[in-house]
Design a protein around this nucleic acid. Structure first.
Lengths: 145, 145
DNA sequence: ATATAAAAGCAATATAGTTGCATTTAAAAT
DNA sequence: ATTTTAAATGCAACTATATTGCTTTTATAT
């Protein structure tokens, strides 16, 4: 694999964002995880490397640029995951299913599962769809059996 | 229509809950609305008729008994709506679509729109589905045109 | 009328997120 | 290399939502 940090630096520059410590660290953390990551977790892991407010602003900037997307968990807490290709500042294309495991509480982006089209009552104009499934993830249902 | 308060009182008794002022008022408010109602709104409307904590506990009790269901809005704030028949303390059956209007911010329960079944990756066990659509509700898309 | 479990009230605290402003710094311009 | 400057960070204070422990009140059964 190519140098990861270099890739992240390019990504920042491409989006008109300066190459800063907190930003690189957030990308580093998010890219190393197989599920969406909560703000509180990020805050804890980053420790004193960045102020809480900085973290919030980094996340907001990344979301606006289409670098990450936000998904709320069952408690309403923000979780973030790196976007698939095809997202940009102009539009997110993350209309995949999010799977919320009742056991390990991880939130998986099921990129392969598309949200089916929907018939809504007359007059309603659907702009975006957000489907959250809950249950047991592959790893946890394994353990139970 | 039959006396509404009497109906609510029966509902409480049926669920082993005492007939109290705050509880009746919450039912009164929720039943008079055409969309899900946020905790902050309820708190404001109830004013000094009930303590904040009481309100939270009423909502929690109702949810546990299957009288109301909770849906989080895009900010992660809890909103509540009276359940359709068929919900109970043992299980909720509110797997309808929630429609979140970008303009008036009302959350509609689209009871008639069922969530389509879903194919998920091997190993994942889906327990519940929660589909939130955003866009313009019938009333708001009317106004725009 | 009384007893009692349940509910409500009150105070304090937790958690997530925001705002305004001063300081620092990455990167552009010289 | 230095300087400049817009962008980013840090800090302090604050807001909103939600929770916990404990005391008092009350709906209901006896």
């Amino acid at each position: 694999m190519e140098n990861k940090t270099a890739r992240f630096e390019k990504l920042l520059v491409k989006n008109g964002l300066k190459r800063t410590g907190p930003r690189l660290q957030v990308l580093e953390i998010l890219s190393g995880r197989d599920s969406a990551t909560s703000q509180p977790y990020l805050e804890q892991v980053m420790g004193k490397n960045a102020d809480r407010v900085t973290l919030y602003r980094v996340l907001q900037a990344f979301e606006e640029k289409g670098i990450i997307h936000k998904v709320l968990d069952q408690q309403g807490t923000a979780n973030y995951a790196i976007c698939s290709d095809g997202c940009s500042a102009h539009e997110h294309h993350d209309e995949h299913v999010h799977f919320n495991c009742d056991n390990c509480h991880k939130i998986y982006c099921l990129d392969t599962v598309k949200i089916p089209a929907l018939k809504v009552p007359a007059g309603f104009k659907v702009e975006h769809l957000n489907l959250i499934a809950t249950g047991l993830c592959a790893s946890c249902s394994d353990k139970v059996n």
